[in-house]
Each structure stands twice: as C-alpha cells, then as structure tokens.
Design a protein around this nucleic acid. Structure first.
Lengths: 129, 129
DNA sequence: TATCGGGCTTCCAACAATTGGAAGGTCAAT
DNA sequence: ATTGACCTTCCAATTGTTGGAAGCCCGATA
C-alpha cells in the first residue's frame, strides 16, 4: 500500500511518516517503480507502535530505542522496564512541578478581584516576590 | 549596568535577554557609546518579572501580554485573572494527561518481569492494543 | 487523446524556547 | 602592548510537528 493508506490505518499522518523515516525511527520504506513508498502490514504495525508509544509520552529518542527493543526477540525485559520506569519518574516530576504552579497561581487568582479595578495581586506577586 | 550584570541580578541569562529583546518581550535596551546594552533597575525588574512568569509556566506569548498588562496602570484586574485562570486550566489538563499515561505505564510495568527473559507486556501492549 | 483531480515526491521554512558557537569589537588591568 | 573578560551580531541546533511550493504519477472522464 502507499503512504496515504498506511497513514490512514496507523493514524500517523503521511508527512510524519516520511519524517520518522528520515530520522531513522522506522526503516526505509521500499519503493515502487515510480518511486512511491510502499508499506506492508508489518510496516503499518511499526507505525502504530510508534503512535501508541507517543501517546504514552515517550520521546522520539526513547521510541527509537523501544522500536529496536521490540524488534529484537532476545532482549531482556528488564531493558524495557528500566526505560519505562525512568519515563514514569520523569512524568511524575513534571506533574509535581505543574501542580505547584497551579497551586501558587490558584492562590493568587483567589485574591484577585477580577473586576474593572486595576489592583491585581497576581501581577504584584510576579513583580515583587 | 551591562547585560552581564542584569543577567546576574535577574537570573535571566544574557543570551536569553537579547533574545527576549529581539522578539519584543522586553523593550529595546538603550546603548552605550560602544554599542553595549545598558540596563536600569527598572529594566532588571521587568526581567525578573519575566523570569517568575516563566516559572509559573506561562508561554512567552502570554508573558508578552502579562508584561504589557503589568505596565498598564489602568488595566482591569479581570484581564489578568482571566489569563491566569485559562493557564491554570491548561496546566490541569496537562496534569490529567500525564497522570493517565503514568497510570497505564505503571500498570504495564507491574506486569513486566524486568529480568533477563524477553517476554515483555509493555512492548506487547504498545504493539497490539 | 487531452486533461483534470488527487496522491505522491523532495526541499525548505516555520512554530516554541533555549542554547551553542564563531568571528569580531571593547574595556580594564597588568 | 597584550591579556582576559565582556560585549556585539549572526547562524545553527535542539524537539516534534506542520505547512507550503514545485513537480511527477496515476486513474478516470470528456
């Protein structure tokens, strides 16, 4: 099948598929006589894998690693688990940071009248802390 | 004072100060005879404001708006509050997304032996869901 | 057969925010 | 006079994705 079909099935748009190929996330697609990229079911499977990994928040660098681990039938599951746990840690750190920002900003907003008057604790705090 | 001094005090590094100037976040600095940028206390104050806003997770676009609101003594506090509340909403959405990713990935990791064996539920899930 | 729409190709540029380097001018002190 | 620290500009890389332009290919219709 052509790239458009592969895009439709995998949910990764054609532009992005070419990009992933160019940066080596996925193997180079074979070509038709006319130079069109052609994809097999297996190729589409890889694309779906990438898409789902992306949905899990993995970076492209991590996904590159995941794809190679996935295709290597003899790798140890510990390698994958380590990668996943590291990613979980990073996400939890990010969550904490965001929660602290929300907390601070929510507190400031609560003290801000939010009307026509110019006095605003939010700006005061950002400016004078 | 020169840019290095302003950077030190505000906590925004010199490179970034120039960048912020170039994209119009902060006003253009005045120059010495030799062409060096010169900063007043008030200029540094703006830089600190930007820095703290960044720490609150605001985008540069939002910060540009915040700076102009801050410098406008007659703006309504509701304008600021609206911006802050919108930002809080976005952060909370992001938090939820991350939490769901963590939840899924944590579940998968729990079922992964994480040893020398190749069988790995994490990869299986990413591939076959 | 001519042509038209849609899909494909490549390359180049933009977004966000920051960081890095290169090549060169300036300043203060030795 | 020269050193070293600081400043200047410009250009490129990062991360992940999206957009456009110019041009080729394929199938269908007039």
């Amino acid at each position: 099948m052509n790239i458009g079909q592969a895009a439709k099935i995998s949910g990764v748009n054609a532009k992005l598929i070419r990009h992933y190929e160019s940066i080596g996330i996925i193997p180079k697609a074979s070509r038709s006589e006319a130079g069109y990229r052609t994809y097999s079911e297996a190729d589409v499977h890889i694309l779906s894998f990438v898409k789902r990994s992306r949905n899990m928040g993995f970076s492209m660098k991590e996904i590159k690693k995941l794809v190679s681990l996935w295709r290597n039938k003899t790798r140890a599951s510990s390698e994958v688990k380590t990668l996943a746990l590291k990613h979980i840690e990073e996400m939890e750190k990010k969550i904490q940071e965001l929660q602290e920002m929300v907390k601070t900003l929510r507190h400031l907003s609560k003290n801000c009248h939010g009307d026509h008057r110019p006095d605003c604790p939010i700006l005061n705090d950002l400016a004078n802390q």
